[in-house]
Structure formats: structure tokens, C-alpha cells
Design a protein around this nucleic acid. Structure first.
Lengths: 337, 337
DNA sequence: GGGTTGCTCGTAAACGCTTTCATGGTATGC
DNA sequence: GCATACCATGAAAGCGTTTACGAGCAACCC
């Protein structure tokens, strides 16, 4: 067992017979010190297994190389996919990731983020439902920050959004290639959810053209769940609307529910019902028929968030960037070609 | 926009007309200061929006209230479920979570954890495959630490393991209630994986009794994937072994693959083939018939890890605890009662 | 050979906080 | 009314770094 307490820069200096300034220099600006003394210091360093105290460094440097990622309490896969992308990128750039998930609910909440703010060099917040105060409160802290999913109007903050319009439009058009427009439906998630709202809008535009005369009868809202999708599809069936329908779901779980309802109803997919999911989670490849779905590059969202953040950390004055990531339609078995 | 740089304790002290010591005291030992001055200080504090510099605190306190969680690059849901549990518990106890995922592979690797060690008060590592050096290297750092999944023999470290034996045994026994023992199969994940190894062992013991004369023909290894499960089941079908079989899968994805293969083979589940998954991920409830499965309390693993860690942080000398979490068999539609 | 230049390195200040110790003041005991 | 105890507060040390600033010294130029 090594000494009770970690070696400090002073210990290294003593052994190497130099001042602490020199030790610091061989670590941070090696070119300012002779090869000779440098090697002597280095020897002392690994003789002691010395590693600089991160807090002391952070205190004076005002930088901890830690980035916080705050996520709503999103279900599984989404979440971890984003995190994976973020983590890889952070590692690559020499940063660590502090995650804050499952924040207390309510638009008034500041996510309990207060204490975190002092610890990190930057913050990526994912905001999926309207929350005015949160962004304001957070940006008031004056810390580099990027917001995901929400894109406050004319924001001076960096933002990353999924181009839901493009994804939903492409999917809808694919549906329209085999199904008449009045038989197309969008089964969304919660009405407040940013993604659902934008997807619904794009769906309507693509399905109905710009003649917005028709009502929104073909759009419904509910939960992002299997059961919600199944129920809504079943209700459609009762109304005689399921047969021959083309359905764009708010996410893959909803789509799976629809898929199952179709099976229950004895309607084969894709011959009698066309279904397109959203997100391309692993689930989409696990059900049969496999789901055609709109692939959302969550890992890219994560890594891009980190990139934007360190860019801003290094140059806080740079102009706000607004990144739009484009989903791609992946065709599998739940739609006709 | 507030002042360029965050308020310090000195600023608060100035406004309140006291010394910085007093400010510190109202924050840390309120009983040492008069109600009168305390309120004056507090007023100054939120007038300035002062929040103590975490690094300065950590530097002197030698505690950052940050805990690292290092995870192998595990697929989605598992991972996030554990994290959710850990995060909730950490928040409850006043800690933050630093996650390190997707570490570089190879048993020699130290996960690139070096730099993290100096930042955190404790570390939870999940180790799913044999890795001697890693634990040694890490524990040499002398930082409070709990290891998940792996349980080094007679370890002096805190550990948390899933009681795979209990879970696999219960599942196997349930299978045996409707299927003869020589028609029971275990379709595992990678051979090296700790969980798979233990589950296989328990399966064999339960299925074959202690007369270990039989070979392991009924056990196979592969990936933790849908496709791997499907392929193996299909091969069983070709060998005429699928009909009438009782199958315990290494995880839910494998089970889903088997489920699908059974459908392809025209064998109804659970009448002709019984299937039990492992983990109870959301997938288990999304396929039809819904999977009977062994529910592994991953969120509990996460929260328990945090509990053990802060316990050790507060009392580094306390005896090592070895927690064993018991899975429960949840019966759904893929097995007969 | 004196003045300049250019390196290497040490001294010391600063970062923002916690905590020990000392101090002055007020209550308490007779 | 004076010693004693106690309480609230301030002064200052120190946590482990980084980084001006300056000192010393060799090499260089006329």
C-alpha cells in the first residue's frame, strides 16, 4: 500500500532537487526546461507515482475538463445512445462526462443543477418540452452551454436539433407512394413534446399539401409507448380505418404497438397496413416484420454536443452555432417499396 | 448578464460586512453564528447569487462529492437502467455521477481511468469478463471502490453481484415443470462473460441434478444478440430438437431470436416451445407472446453501488461488504404454467 | 571588455475556500 | 465588582497548483 496521502508537487521537487515551478513546467511547458533536468524530474515523478491534484489545477486554471450532460428521464435506448456518442467524443477531446438524469419535474425546476454548475466547464441540456425559465436560469450562470432538441427562437446559445421535418417528410412521402393521402395517419407521442409537434406538422404538410383546409383528424397524440400505439391502432380498426392505412409512428415503440394491433386484427403488414417507426432503436430490427423507420443519429447528437461545447469553452465569444442533424429513412419490411 | 466572473466568498463578506470566515460558517456550521448576522450574510448571498467554488472546497476538504461509474460498452437498456438507479441514489445522497463508458478494450487497459481518479471520491467499476490487472491497478490507487458483477475471491473490496444461480435455478425449475430435463437447453451469451458462465452452471445443476455425468450438450454460447439466438434455435430445429424444447436464454434478445425462430419453424409458443429470457428489459414486454423472463434489478445494482460507495467514503476502514441481489422470475406468455 | 540578448530556473503571489487560534465582549459566579 | 467562562467573530495559515517576474549566467556582438 502506498503512502497514506498522495504525493504532491513539492515532494517531486524535493527529490529532483528543483523548485516546484520547474516541476510544473516539465508537465505543462516542457520546452521551457533543459532536457537534463526534465528527465531528472520525470524520474522523480514516476518514482513517486505522482499525479497532479486535479482540484488545485482546476482552482487556478478555472477549468476542470468536465462537461455535464443533463437529460430528461428518457426511456432507455435513446438516452444511452446519446451518452455513448458523447462519451466517446469527450474522451477523444480529453474531457470527462458528468451526467445528470431524471431531474425533478416541473417547468420551474432548475434540474438541481446549481451545484453542478460550479464543477463543470460546460453543460449540454436536453430539453424536450417547453421550459422557458430553465434555459434562462441556466444561461444566466454564464457557463458555456448547448441545448439539445429545443431551439429557442433567435437563441444566442449553441443548439442541436434533429431535423424532424426532413425525416417526417421523407417518411410521409414514402408512405404516399403506396397509400392515398387521406389514408395516412400520424400517431405521435405527447402533444407537448417538441419532436412530436414538429413531426406532426411536417406530416400534415407532406400529406395534405399546403392546402391546409382539412382538419387534423389523421393526427393523434398519446404516450411514447407500445401500449399507446396498440390501443390507437385498435381503435382505428374498430372505426374501419386500419385496413389500407399508412401509418407514421412517433417512435419505434408506438410502431411496434401498431404492428401488433395489425396482427391481432388479422391485417398483414405491409400488404394491408404500412408502418414507419421513428428513431431506429434496436427494437426496430427485433420485431417481425422489421420496421421501416426514420433513423435518428443520437450518437451524433451526443458527439456534436461535446464538440460544440469544447469549441465554445475554448472561444467563449464565438458566434452561436445551430446544428441540424438529418435523420435518414431506413426501409425494412413494414412498408412496400 | 452578470459580472464577468463569479462572485467569491470575499464579495459576500464585503457586502454583509463580515469576514469570510463568518460567511463560510453560516454555510457550514450555522449554529456557530448569530441569527442576526446569519440572515445578513444570507441576504448578501442571494443578492450575489453566490455559490461556493467547488474546486476550492474540494481542494481543502479533499472531497468533491463526485462518484465515477465505469461501465463496459454494454448495450443500451441495461446500462441506462443501472445509471438511472445510480443517479437517483447519488442525487439523494448529495453526490454527482461521472460516467466512463466504452473503455478501450484489452485486459491490460486501465480504462483510461487514471485522470479520473484524482477527481472523484469513489469509483464503481463494472467488470463482466476476467480482468486481473484492472482491479489490482485500480485498487492500488487507494480510492474507495466497489466492483460490480465480478467478485474477486476473498476480495477486500465491496462487491455487488447478481445472484445468477438463484435466478437461473428458479427459471430452470419452472421449465422442468412442463418439459423433461433432457429437453432443456441453455442458450448463453459469450463464454467468457461472468453472468453467462454462472447461469450456465446453475442451469446444468438444476437440469441434471448433481449427477454430472452428462456432457454439456444442452448448453451453447454465442453473442448476446437476437440473431445469435435465432440462428441457434434454427439449428436446433434442423436437428429436430426445437419441438418440445424448454429454452433458457442468456438474455432477452437471445430469447426474442428464439421466439422468432420458433415462429419461422411453425412451432407455437408456449405450447410446443417454452422460452424464458433473462434481464426483463422492455423488449420482453414488447414481443408477442410476451416473454417470461428473469428480472434482474439493474436499477438496484446502481443504487446499491452508490450506497456502498458513500458508506466507504465516510468510513474507509469499514469491513468489505458483498451484496448479492436476487433476480425474480416473472411469468408471462412464453411458458406454460 | 562592457553591454546586450537569450535561456533556465527559483521566488512568490494568487486561486477561493475551511479551520485553528486568538481576541474582545458579554453573561455568570461569588 | 472582579475573576471566570463562554460565545461570536476576525486574522491568518494552508490546501496544491500555475504563472508572472526577476535573478543568474553563458554566449554574443562590436
Amino acid at each position: 500500500m502506498p503512502g497514506r496521502t498522495a504525493a504532491s508537487i513539492q515532494d517531486v521537487a524535493d527529490i529532483a532537487g528543483v523548485s516546484i515551478a520547474t516541476v510544473s513546467r516539465v508537465l505543462n511547458s516542457p520546452n521551457l526546461v533543459t532536457a537534463d533536468t526534465a528527465s531528472r524530474v520525470r524520474k522523480a515523478i514516476d518514482q513517486l507515482g505522482y499525479v497532479p491534484n486535479a482540484f488545485a489545477q482546476a482552482l487556478i486554471t478555472r477549468s476542470s475538463r468536465v462537461i455535464a450532460v443533463a437529460l430528461p428521464d428518457i426511456h432507455g435506448e435513446f438516452y444511452s445512445e446519446l451518452l455513448r456518442g458523447a462519451d466517446a467524443e469527450a474522451r477523444r477531446l480529453g474531457y470527462h462526462l458528468l451526467v445528470v438524469s431524471n431531474p425533478p419535474k416541473g417547468p420551474q425546476s432548475d434540474l438541481g443543477l446549481g451545484p453542478v454548475l460550479g464543477l463543470v466547464d460546460g453543460l449540454a441540456v436536453m430539453i424536450t418540452e417547453p421550459n422557458e425559465t430553465l434555459v434562462k436560469r441556466l444561461s444566466a450562470a454564464g457557463i458555456p452551454m448547448v441545448v439539445l432538441d429545443a431551439a429557442p427562437e433567435g437563441s444566442t446559445l449553441d443548439t442541436i436539433v434533429i431535423d424532424n421535418e426532413a425525416g417526417a417528410t421523407e417518411a410521409t412521402e414514402h408512405l404516399l407512394s403506396t397509400v392515398p393521402s387521406n389514408r395516412c395517419y400520424f400517431l405521435g407521442g405527447p402533444r407537448d413534446n417538441f419532436d412530436t409537434a414538429r413531426r406532426a406538422e411536417a406530416f400534415l404538410r407532406a400529406a395534405l399539401g399546403d392546402g391546409r383546409s382539412r382538419s387534423n383528424v389523421n393526427v393523434s397524440y398519446g404516450e411514447y409507448s407500445f401500449e399507446s400505439g396498440r390501443e390507437r391502432a385498435l381503435r382505428m380498426h374498430e372505426a374501419g380505418e386500419l385496413d389500407g392505412a399508412g401509418i407514421l409512428a412517433g417512435n419505434d415503440e408506438i410502431a411496434s404497438g401498431v404492428l401488433h394491433a395489425a396482427r391481432e386484427a388479422g391485417l398483414s403488414v405491409p400488404e394491408r397496413v404500412s408502418i414507419i417507426g421513428f428513431d431506429d432503436t434496436r427494437l426496430a430490427s427485433l420485431v417481425r416484420p422489421m420496421l421501416s423507420t426514420v433513423r435518428v443519429p443520437m450518437a451524433d447528437v451526443g458527439s456534436t454536443a461535446i464538440q460544440l461545447l469544447v469549441r465554445r469553452i475554448k472561444d467563449p465569444e464565438s458566434a452561436a452555432m445551430h446544428v441540424r442533424l438529418t435523420p435518414t429513412l431506413v426501409l425494412r419490411q413494414s412498408t412496400l417499396r
